[in-house]
Design a protein around this nucleic acid. Structure first.
Lengths: 235, 235
DNA sequence: ACAAAAGTGTTACTTTTACACCCATGG
DNA sequence: CCATGGGTGTAAAAGTAACACTTTTGT
C-alpha cells in the first residue's frame, strides 16, 4: 500500500507547526567564554533565563529569521552564524508544540547595541556558570559548544569573537577558553604564526603588562588565497 | 520597543508551517557508495528522482518522523541516523512552503524490505552518478556526504553499511568509497587492527579470490569499553 | 603453472609535545 | 630595581606515509 499514489492535494490535511529560532550567542570577555542570555519578562517561563529566540515568519527563510532575531537583540548584522539543527521533541515547549531551529553566533562582546540588549534584559553569563535554562536550551548550548570546538579547530572562526586588532596572548586565552584546556605558549605561537595569515602591527596593548603585547590582525585576503590552494587551517 | 513585553497569547497569530523530513539513505554495494532514491509517481515533480520524504505529524517528534519515513521505504528499524539540519528557503518547494529536516541513514544494502522499496519505485544510484534531484535534495546529499566523511573519520559508523561479518578488503573498499581516495593496504590494516575491536573468525569469504579473506566482526562491547576509558577512534 | 587477490614489516618523514630562560617596562 | 607578563628555540616522541614481496588456491 503506497499512500502517495494519490494525485494532487499533496499538502492538503497535513499538519502545520509553529517554528522558532533560538540563538546561542557567544562572546569573549575577561578571559572567559560567555553567552548572551535574556531574562524573560514574559510568559511562558517569565523570570527565567533563556536563549534569545523568536518565531519564524511567513515568507522568511529560517536563516533570515535567525539573523533577524540576533539583530533584534544586538543590533548586529553580518555576524558569523551556523545552524546546529532543529529541535522537535513534542513537549519541548510545555505551552504549545513549537519546533526550534538553533543557531550559534560569534560576536565581539564590545561591539553591539547595549541599550537594545538591555531592553531585552540581556546578560552575559560565563559558560561555566550557565544555570538551568528553559525548555531544551541547555541541550542546545551543549551542542553549540561542541560544534564551536570542532569548527574552531578546523577554520579560523575565533577572530569573530575578538576585536579587529588583538594580541597573541589574547588569542591564546580565547582558544584556551573555547577548548577548555591550557595550551603551550611557544607551540601555540609557532602554529599560529606559521600559517602566515596574521599581520603584525607596530602598536602594542599595554593594558595587561608593562612591556605590552603587539597587536595583530587577521588577514582575510591572505587566508582566502591560501584556501584556494588547498591549504588547511588547524589549531 | 520590546515587542515581547506583552503578556499571554504568546503563540497567537504566529505563522504555522508544513514540516517534512527527507532521508539520505546510504548503502554500499559492488564496491560503491550508493543512495536509495525514489522515482516519484505523484506530484509535485512526478516522474523525477528524489529522496524519500514525508510530512511531520502532530504528536510526533522530528526524529520519530525520520525513523518512520525510513521504515516506510525499507521496513527497517533501529538504523543509524543523524540529523544534518533543517532546510528552510522560502521557495525550496515550489508547490507550497515546506520546511524540511534532513537525516542521513546508513543501511546494509542486502538487508531491507525490497518489495516495500519496490512499491515506492526505489532505486540504488551510485554517488558518482547522482542526477539532478527535486527541490534542494542535491544540496542535502552534498551536506550529508560531508557529514558522513567527518563522522566516519572519528567514529566507527562504517560498519552499519556492511553485513555483520565482513572482510578487511571489503572494509577498506568501503572507506575508500566514503572518503573518495585510495588507502594503503598495510597502513589501513595496521590501524584498524590496532584498535582491538575486531574479532577474527575462522570463516573465509572466497567470492573475490581463490585464497579467500577472513571474515571479521565488529565487537561493540569491546568498543564501548574502550570509549569509557577515553580512547579515541580515528581512521 | 599461473593468475589474482590476501596477507605481512620496516624505514623515512612529518607532526606534536615538552620544556626554561631572557626581555621590556611601569611602578 | 624588581615584579609582571611578553617573547623566543630545540630535542624527544609519536604518528603518518611510503614502499615490495610472499602466500594461497581454483582453474
Amino acid at each position: 500500500m503506497v499512500e502517495n499514489e494519490e494525485v494532487g492535494n499533496y499538502y492538503e490535511n497535513k499538519d502545520r507547526f509553529y517554528v522558532a529560532v533560538d540563538c546561542i550567542i557567544f562572546g569573549f570577555h575577561e578571559d572567559e567564554l560567555k553567552l548572551l542570555l535574556i531574562r524573560r519578562m514574559f510568559d511562558p517561563c517569565k523570570g527565567e533565563l533563556s536563549l534569545m529566540g523568536g518565531f519564524l515568519n511567513k515568507g522568511e527563510s529560517i536563516e533570515a529569521a535567525a539573523e533577524r532575531v540576533l539583530q533584534e537583540l544586538t543590533g548586529l548584522e553580518n555576524v558569523f552564524m551556523e545552524q546546529i539543527g532543529i529541535f522537535g521533541e513534542v513537549n519541548r515547549d510545555p505551552g504549545e508544540r513549537v519546533l526550534s531551529a538553533a543557531y550559534y553566533a560569534l560576536i565581539n562582546s564590545d561591539d553591539y547595541d547595549k541599550v537594545l540588549a538591555e531592553s531585552h534584559h540581556a546578560v552575559w553569563v560565563p559558560m561555566k556558570d550557565i544555570p538551568e535554562l528553559i525548555f531544551d536550551h541547555n541541550l542546545m548550548v551543549m551542542i553549540a559548544l561542541k560544534q564551536l570546538k570542532r569548527k574552531a579547530s578546523v577554520e579560523p572562526i575565533g577572530f569573530n569573537l575578538l576585536p579587529q586588532y588583538f594580541t597573541l596572548p589574547q588569542l591564546q586565552t580565547l582558544y584556551e577558553a573555547i577548548f577548555g584546556e591550557t595550551l603551550d605558549k611557544r607551540n601555540f605561537r609557532k602554529k599560529v604564526l606559521s600559517m602566515d595569515v596574521f599581520e603584525k602591527t607596530d602598536e602594542k596593548d599595554k593594558s595587561n603588562s608593562k612591556r605590552g603585547a603587539f597587536y595583530y590582525r587577521f588577514d582575510y585576503d591572505k587566508y582566502n588565497a591560501l584556501m584556494q590552494n588547498g591549504s588547511h587551517f588547524a589549531l
